[in-house]
Amino acid sequence: MKHRILQIGPITAPADERLARDYDIAPLWKQPDRAAFLAEHGPAFEGIAVHVRDACGADILNALPHARVIVNFGVGYDKIDVETARRLGMQISNTPRVLDGCVADLAMGLAIDVARGLSTTDRFVRAGGWKTGQRPLMTRVHGKNMGLLGFGGIGQAVARRAAGFDMAVRYHARRPVEGSAHEHEPSLAELARWADFLVVACPGGPATRHLVNAEVMEALGPRGILVNIARGSVVDEAALVRALQEGRLGGAGLDVFEHEPDVPPALLEMDQVVALSHIAGFTRESRADMEQLVCDNLDAYFRTGQVLTPV
């Protein structure tokens, strides 16, 4: 008999097809009364499959007394109630590393775009502005200081790319990374004061909420550029808007926002802001790798009792 798995929401067509082929899948998002469904069928489930966008809270976890594994499609797992899951003896996996390169590519792209005005110049040319004038001087990227908030797989991938631009790199994390050639800065504000670019590459969740606050933006300064490819919750969005409007921050390249898909209208009105739709991992290659890994994690758990990439 196939193992019974609760799938909280759709993942991708290939992942959904493989899960449905190999497991007895129950699609929670299709149930008209989720609470009633969980109350009736919860004890039958042995595991959970969840997309990073969907919440997996205590209401779901407590209704599944025999589930012992959660496989998460995504790197971030801030929408999973980790404390409750661990109290109930559940293993949690995510899909790390397979996204590192693509997310780091986009971080560098945002840094270059904001500094050199690529998006705004594209709009300028399309509107016919080049026929009557030229864009103002912008800022170079090579040779500048790159500060990284978070120095896991993605942060380290950004650092490698920054080295190709002859940039100096320092990072702020909970503790120094052993063996790293880059300097660890214990103070985030001091890192921002040193940096020309500050890239947010840390996990989301309560522990990092609004870590990038008004003080940090003030330290980054009127020529500093903030790049966020992590989670919108890490940046105090209201403080960001004020800092940009008042010229206390030079610019921002944002792939994530506090209340996605809602973006503050004020940010969209500013030429020094590049706003994307949370696409850092949206490449064909990384998507296929994520689909493979989320299914491999579930397979490994039922084969060996351990997921491949525990959080």
Rank of each mutant, 00 (worst) to 15 (best):
M1H: 15
K2W: 04
H3P: 01
R4V: 02
I5V: 13
Q7V: 04
G9E: 12
T12H: 04
A15F: 01
D16Y: 06
D16W: 01
R18A: 15
A20K: 12
R21H: 13
R21F: 01
Y23A: 09
P27F: 04
F37S: 12
F37T: 11
G42E: 11
P43F: 09
E46N: 06
D54R: 11
C56F: 07
D59S: 12
P65G: 05
I70T: 05
V71Q: 10
G74D: 01
G76H: 10
T84L: 11
Q91E: 15
S93A: 15
S93W: 02
V103K: 07
D105I: 07
I112Q: 04
T121A: 10
V125N: 02
A127K: 09
W130F: 13
K131V: 07
R135E: 13
M138W: 01
R140I: 10
R140Y: 03
G143N: 06
N145E: 11
L149H: 06
F151Y: 15
V158P: 05
A159P: 11
A163W: 08
D166Y: 03
M167Y: 10
M167C: 13
M167H: 09
Y171E: 08
A173P: 02
P176K: 12
V177F: 05
H182A: 05
L188T: 13
R193A: 15
A195N: 08
F197V: 10
V199S: 07
V200M: 04
A201M: 07
C202F: 00
C202D: 02
P203D: 02
P203A: 03
G204P: 02
G205K: 13
P206R: 14
H210L: 04
L211D: 01
V212H: 08
V212N: 06
E215W: 06
A219D: 00
L220E: 08
G221L: 03
P222L: 04
P222W: 04
G224L: 02
I225F: 00
L226M: 07
V227T: 07
G232F: 04
G232S: 02
V234C: 02
A238L: 06
A238K: 11
L240W: 00
G247W: 09
L249N: 09
G250D: 00
G250P: 03
A252W: 01
E258Q: 15
E260I: 14
D262Q: 15
V263H: 09
S277W: 03
T283I: 08
R284S: 14
S286F: 03
A288W: 00
D299K: 09
F302P: 07
F302A: 08
Q306S: 11
